[in-house]
Computed example of a mutant assay.
Amino acid sequence: MKRTSNHKITICTSCKHQGTNCRPGYELIERLRNAIETAGDSVTESFEISGVACMAGCGRPCTVAYHGTRKATYLFGDIDPETDIDDLVSFARQYAHLHDGWCSSVDRPGKLRQTTLARVPAAIIAIEDDQALVS
């Protein structure tokens, strides 16, 4: 039986460094998968890591999103596959333990303090009690 992950990391695969054909997203996916696997038990939740064609962060390659069930989503830009892996793994560790995914910029590791493009609150669906609707 395949285990389903409650946490996902999505990386843009179409971002290019300005003036080049370099698309660092694929390299970042491979490096991050290896680093998460190496981290083992220190990253207590299982993260699914995948690529997507575009996350509209073209001016800030590579863009990386962290999202989880009933948690805020984060979008980071200007991520370098060679230098930012430790910060991404540290944030995965942190994000896995955040009940609602919410943290301030000063609590994010290293470079991620300055490269946050967006924090999107979790979708909350309000369910009204049927009896409250009866008048």
Rank of each mutant, 00 (worst) to 15 (best):
E37F: 09
R113T: 06
R60I: 11
F76K: 05
S50E: 13
Y95L: 05
P61A: 09
F47L: 03
G101M: 02
T73M: 15
H97R: 12
S50G: 11
P81S: 09
A53N: 15
E30D: 15
G25Y: 04
D100I: 06
N34L: 10
Y66W: 11
R113V: 02
C54K: 11
D100H: 10
V64M: 08
D87P: 00
T115W: 04
G40R: 12
F47E: 00
Q114E: 14
N34H: 11
A35F: 06
A65R: 08
A56V: 14
A56N: 15
C22Q: 14
L98G: 03
A35P: 08
G40N: 14
F91R: 02
R23L: 09
F47I: 03
K111V: 06
L28W: 08
T63L: 08
S104V: 10
H97M: 09
A56E: 13
Y95C: 00
S105L: 14
I36R: 00
R93Q: 15
Y95E: 02
H67Y: 08
C58R: 04
N34I: 09
S42P: 03
D80E: 09
D107M: 10
F91K: 03
S90T: 01
L98Y: 05
D107W: 05
P81F: 07
I29Q: 11
V106D: 15
G40H: 11
D41G: 15
V64A: 07
H99V: 13
S104F: 10
D80V: 00
K111C: 00
D80N: 14
V52L: 10
L75P: 04
D41S: 12
G68W: 03
D78I: 01
R23T: 11
T38Q: 15
S46D: 14
V106M: 10
G110P: 01
E48P: 05
A39R: 06
L32V: 07
R70I: 06
S50R: 13
H99E: 12
F91D: 03
M55K: 03
V52F: 11
G25K: 04
I36D: 01
G25I: 07
G68E: 02
A35K: 04
L75T: 05
L32P: 06
A96I: 01
V43R: 00
L117M: 11
A72K: 03
C103S: 12
L28Y: 09
K71E: 03
C54H: 11
E82Q: 12
A39V: 08
